[in-house]
Design a protein around this nucleic acid. Sequence first.
DNA 1: TATGTATTGGAATTATTATTTCATATTCCC
DNA 2: GGGAATATGAAATAATAATTCCAATACATA
Lengths: 288, 288
Amino acid sequence: MSLDRATMDERVPRDFETLRTTILERRESLPKRIAQIAAHALDNPDDIAFGTAASIAASAGVQPSTLIRFAQQLGFDGFTSLQQVFRERLRERNSSYDERLQALRAKAEGGAGHRAIFDGFVAAASTSLNDISRTLDEAHLEDAISLLAKAETIYVLAKRRSYPVASYIAYALGKLKIRNQLIESAAGLNAEMIGFATPADAVIAISFSPYAPATIEEARSISEQGVPIVAITDSSFSPLAQFAKVWFEVAEADFAGFRSLSATMALAMALTVGVGEKRRDTSRKRKA
Amino acid sequence: MSLDRATMDERVPRDFETLRTTILERRESLPKRIAQIAAHALDNPDDIAFGTAASIAASAGVQPSTLIRFAQQLGFDGFTSLQQVFRERLRERNSSYDERLQALRAKAEGGAGHRAIFDGFVAAASTSLNDISRTLDEAHLEDAISLLAKAETIYVLAKRRSYPVASYIAYALGKLKIRNQLIESAAGLNAEMIGFATPADAVIAISFSPYAPATIEEARSISEQGVPIVAITDSSFSPLAQFAKVWFEVAEADFAGFRSLSATMALAMALTVGVGEKRRDTSRKRKA
DNA sequence: TATGTATTGGAATTATTATTTCATATTCCC
DNA sequence: GGGAATATGAAATAATAATTCCAATACATA
C-alpha cells in the first residue's frame, strides 16, 4: 500500500504552503474523518505545531489513528514528520524579515525566477511597515493632524517616486470631502497654483533622496508665503525638513533598485483619515 | 528544598518576558552548567520551544538532567512547563494579523486616538501582503511577464483608487527605459491615445470594485483592437477579467473605509522589474 | 440484497522522552 | 586540609506519546 503511494506520488510537501495547496486540492476526494482533520489543521496550524497526536485528535473530534492516516495519506511516514512542517512554519515566520530580505535579494540576484522578485517586494514592504510602526512618533502624528485639520485647503506636493502617494492622498481627501489641491506638473502652472495658497491653508509635501529639485523649490516658495508644511521624507538632513513645521522620517526598504511605498502609504492614509476624524469632532463640538 | 524555594519565590514566570528578566537577574548567581543553559535558552528560544530535553541539552553541551534542574530552579516543576512558556511566545507572536486588525478596528471605532488609525493601516497592509504571497499564482506571473516583455509599448490603465499604482508602474518602467504610456484623463484624449495601440503592444489594467466605468470601457475598446491585456483586479467576476489574457486576483484588506494598496503595489513592481529582467535576458541571447 | 472494499474506532504495542536516582566531582567555609 | 554543602554526569526508571493492529462499520457495485 505505502509502496503504491510512494510510486504514484513521490513528492512529500516540505513546506507549509505546498502542504496547504496539496490539502486544498485533495479536499474533495478525502474521506469524512480525514477531511475533518484536514480542515482542523488548516484552521489551527498552531495547535498542530505544538499539540500531541492525542490532544489534536481530541480537539478535531477524531481518533489519533485517523490523524496518522491523514499524515500518511499526504505521503509523510507518520504524524511526527507532518508536525515538522507545521513547526518549521512557525520558525520561518519568526525569523526576522530583514534576514528574509537578504536571502531573497541574493536569490533574485542569482536569477531565481520571477517569484523571487515578487517575494522580494513583499518582504521589502513588510520590513518597511515593521520599521515605521516601531519608529513613528505619536506626538508628531497628533501635531500634523491638528495642523492639517485647521487648513482651508490642503495642498499635496510630490514628484516622481513619491507622486503615487500624493495621488492617493488627493483621492482619499476627495472622498472625505476635504478641499485639496494636488500640485501636478502636467499643465506647467505650478507656480500660479502655489501662489493661491495662504497661511490659512496647509501643505503635505513628500520627497525622498534624491530629492526632486522642483519639489524642494516649490516647498521653499510656499513656506515663504507662510503656509505651514507637513513633510514626509527620509532623513533629518532632507532639504524638506527645514521648511516643515512637522516632519516624519520614513525609512523604506528597497528591492531591485525600487523602494517600497508601503510605509509612506500607511502614514499618508493615517494623516488623511485622521484629519477627517478631527474635523468631524470639531464640527460636532461647535454645534453643541 | 523545593519547599524553601516555593516560600522565597512564589511567582513562576508565566510569560517569556518575565522569564527573560528573571534569568538575567540571576545570571551571576547561577552554577556554571545552569548558566550555560540559561544563555543557550535566551539565544535560541526557538530550539527550546521545539526540541526535546535531550536534543536541547546536547546542543547546549550539558546533560538533560541539568536542563531539568534549570527549570526547577526557576520555579517550574519540570522541563515541560518551562517549555510551555517558550511555545506560548511563538503562538503570541504569530497570532494572526487578522485578529490584530479586528482589534484595531474596534479600538479606532472607540475613538482611541490617531495612533490606532495608523496601526490599523499598517495592519491592513500587512494582512494584504500575507494574503497575496499565499495566493499568487506563479504561472500567471510568468505568463504576464512574458506577454508584457514582448510589447513594443506598455499602456498603463487605471483610475481613481488604482491610479497611484498605475503612476508608480509608469515611473518604474520609465526608469528601466521601457517604453510606456500612462492613460490619464486630464487632457480628455484617452480615446485617441488608445487608438494608437496595436496588437504588438500590451496593456496593464488595474481596477477594483466599484469598477470605474471609464476603465472598463477603455479596456473593452483596447482589447477589441487585439491588444493583449494583463489585469489586476479583485474577483473573478470583475468585468476586467473577461477582457484580459492574464489576470490576477488581489484581495486587499481595508481599514476605515480605505483599502490598502500594498499587495497591488508589490505585484505591480514584480511585473515591472520582471519585464525589465526578461528583456535584458532576451537581448543578451540575441547577441550571442 | 449480497459481496468486496474502504473507512473508522479503540485498545495493544512500541517508541520516545522526561524525570529520578545515585555515585562522583567540585566548591566553599571553618 | 577536612568536611559539609552543592553541583554534575550517567544510567535507570517512569511517563507519555506515537504507531500498529484488528474488529466493526459504512459504502459502493454488481
